[in-house]
């Protein structure tokens, strides 16, 4: 009885709060998964022609004779994400090596803060940059009719994904024990050889995880992609073609869809696809990262 003073109650309260915080991640992931599946599964099982979904480009959910071909949307998302990785991987890995291995003192601190600031720019601002700066620039530089295309969205998305990749990659390089570097230097390796032949191979798993998380970010990004791709159902044959992303399709169409309709279900089918792919990417990144720490 005498134990139950204020400190005891505070202790219990904080314990409960921490516990709720701890399991909330699981609750939310499971909750979202159940919700998305519940809304979309009926449609997927009863109405959706799976073969058409993956092989046809005809996405016409509001037609009197509706077709639900998502191939162009999948290819659109993949092409934009692929180009984004071409842009962001060299940038992010270069930045991580510089911040982690070369920069010292104030430069290093300033760079870290700036990279984190870059990660905090809202995606609609990136979309706006794509729409108002990149688009006319692309038209001028390459003499193409429309500036809203794979190239535009890929570059924007690459710049968006780079900061988070830089931060994680830098952590991975930092996790490589200094003993490795010292040993390599003692053997007479130059600074470049130390980084290229010792530090990067040792931090490889962390770097792969960084890239995968960047891919996940790109795959799930919506607003900037909606604004910069041109939102056109199209299998791209060059970086100057407009495409449409899975996420952007959901964002553009869900708002005006009547609850429980086939169109509504089809958008949740896209949601299930997106959720599955990002889940797999993140899980892979996590497994890869775990292997680093165990070693």
């Amino acid at each position: 009885m005498d134990q139950r003073d204020r400190a005891w109650w505070t202790d219990r309260l904080v314990q409960a709060l921490v516990f709720i915080g701890g399991i909330s991640g699981i609750v939310f992931v499971v909750g979202i998964f159940v919700f998305v599946t519940k809304e979309g599964l009926g449609f997927v099982l009863n109405t959706l022609d799976i073969k058409e979904f993956f092989t046809s480009i005809a996405w016409r959910p509001t037609s009197s004779n509706p077709t639900y071909g998502a191939l162009a949307l999948i290819v659109g998302t993949a092409s934009v994400t692929g180009l984004a990785m071409l842009v962001s991987v060299p940038l992010a890995l270069g930045a991580a090596v510089y911040i982690g291995e070369f920069a010292k003192g104030k430069t290093r601190e300033a760079l870290k803060v700036l990279v984190e600031l870059l990660a905090a720019i809202p995606s609609v601002v990136w979309g706006f940059i794509g729409l108002s700066i990149m688009s006319p620039l692309i038209i001028d530089l390459f003499d193409v009719p429309v500036g809203l295309n794979v190239l535009n969205a890929g570059v924007i998305l690459g710049l968006m994904a780079a900061p988070i990749m830089t931060t994680i990659a830098e952590d991975a390089l930092k996790a490589v024990p200094d003993g490795y570097r010292e040993a390599a230097e003692a053997l007479g390796a130059t600074r470049w050889e130390v980084i290229w032949k010792v530090v990067i191979p040792a931090g490889k798993n962390g770097l792969v995880a960084a890239v995968l998380l960047g891919v996940g970010r790109g795959f799930g990004e919506t607003m900037a992609v909606l604004m910069a791709t041109g939102h056109s159902i199209n299998i791209p044959t060059s970086p100057f073609d407009s495409v449409r992303a899975l996420t952007a399709t959901i964002a553009a169409e869900l708002g005006d869809t009547s609850y429980g309709s086939d169109h509504y279900g089809s958008l949740f089918a896209l949601g299930i696809l997106l959720f599955t792919v990002t889940f797999i990417i993140n899980l892979t990144a996590d497994v890869v990262l775990r292997r680093t720490t165990r070693r």
Binding site: W59, R60, S63, S64, V146, H231, S232, I233
Partner: peptide, 14 residues
């Protein structure tokens, strides 16, 4: 016309 479809590949604005 009532039963016709749009050509795919248009830029669909919001």
């Amino acid at each position: 016309g009532e039963d016709a479809e749009y050509k795919l590949g248009s830029r669909d604005m919001h």
